[in-house]
Write a protein that binds this DNA or RNA. Structure first.
Lengths: 241, 241
DNA sequence: CGACCGGTGCTTGTATACCAGGGCTGCCCG
DNA sequence: CGGGCAGCCCTGGTATACAAGCACCGGTCG
């Protein structure tokens, strides 16, 4: 196989590249819920062997983004409203607890980062993907502000379903401005030390996704899991290239 | 809680068996922090090929229980106090939030399960491993009582470091009776609907692990990570058989 | 005596071959 | 014409072969 696909291994393994690629495609809905993922096809499309593809799928499976049915097939998992609710519950619990743990003296560097982030969020002509990245960074930085930044990794791996639902919602409304306003509200409350207000603003902000989920579910039910009985259908092939 | 992996051929994959075996050995400290894990040796010892072993190690690596250094080796990760704190923070946030979400009418079946569980915890001659299983079930059932039972899976995958620290602590003190009392205290507060008391009891209970960690760390520093600079040393071989 | 340098054996990473099992299709029979 | 059944083909699961890289060790040279 051509070894020119990647420059030599310098901490950058093929598996990691494949994993990140697939994860991004799933989260951005480029690989839509329900899409069939053939290890052979993915390997051929990405120019690697089955091994790194397979290992990546196993990782995504553990995150709940992919379902693997032995001897049947692997599929992008449909958005499960129950899992969305779980991720939402977990995230809200963590972020609210973090607000309660904010130190008296806020790290000025992180505060500056937040300020700059919020300014970027209101930049005109901001692409949706850019907004998502800023949104991620905003919440992560808030967690770091409370000294629990590394807990963010767990939240990230658990909120895959949530992210897809949020994306569905934003692709629909296409108005991240409201969320940016909520971010500012949270940030201001944190700055003045109004814990109750910060809590309320954060809770409102995080729960806004539920409205989106229900709205999108009514419009595109095929993206959501019906019951626990997900029937794998092999013919449900979706090309992603 | 019966596991269905051995009942039928379905789902009885070699990888799952290897993964569960290795995870158990790591969590029970049978594979101590710092132990070298050679894919070849593990495969030979478990009677399988490298493939399922390797895939299991990758999964454990994502949970933070194992560290994989490409072209160098794989090792049982040392107990990182920072990660213990993170897991503790996340768990506390989730479980306290769950207490706040308890419905007015508690599921009588789950309440019975909790009652029975607590009785078992006080059974004389209880083995430590049995107590750990009961402890796990107790907290999981509490989460289910609040309707967020499936969020437990995320907590489980994140609290590997925490579990090892708790085990270290209990192997040292060998007195789970105190924890059983705390469980009863939480349960009683939940039953009478005293949210504040339940919160306080849960917080005290969950934070007890910190005392253990510091005590054990002073006694057995080699089990803990020194800094972020973890230097893999190949000669650090530990046999586990 | 000490520092450097290359061989050697181990490690994980990747590719490939083979296996068991289940869905799909199309023939065959009623 | 319709239902049942058998074989094909694709699936993921596992085993194995090969490749790349780092640590250790021993010899050699300054």
């Amino acid at each position: 196989m051509a070894r020119s696909n990647r420059q030599s291994n310098r901490g950058r393994t093929s598996r990691r590249a494949v994993y990140e690629t697939l994860r991004r495609k799933v989260l951005t809905l480029e690989l839509p819920p329900g899409a069939a993922l053939s290890e052979n096809e993915l390997a051929a499309a990405l120019g690697v062997s089955r091994t790194p593809v397979r290992e990546s799928l196993i990782l995504l499976s553990q995150e709940g983004l992919v379902q693997i049915f032995p001897q049947v097939g692997s599929f992008v998992s449909r958005v499960d409203p129950a899992k969305v609710a779980d991720a939402q519950f977990l995230r809200e619990a963590v972020e609210l607890a973090a607000l309660g743990d904010l130190p008296a003296e806020l790290d000025p560097e992180l505060v500056d980062a937040l300020r700059h982030n919020l300014a970027e969020q209101r930049r005109p002509g901001l692409a949706l993907e850019e907004f998502f990245e800023l949104d991620e960074a905003f919440h992560q930085t808030l967690l770091r502000l409370s000294g629990h930044g590394s807990a963010w990794a767990t939240v990230v791996s658990a909120k895959g379903h949530l992210d897809r639902a949020r994306r569905l919602g934003l692709y629909d409304t296409a108005s991240p401005a409201g969320f940016a306003d909520q971010h500012v509200e949270i940030f201001d409350a944190v700055l003045v030390g109004d814990l109750a207000l910060a809590h309320a603003a954060m809770r409102t902000h995080l729960r806004a996704v539920f409205d989106d989920v229900e709205r999108i579910r009514a419009r595109s039910p095929e993206l959501f899991a019906t019951d626990s009985g997900t029937v794998p259908v092999r013919r449900n092939v979706v090309v992603w290239e």
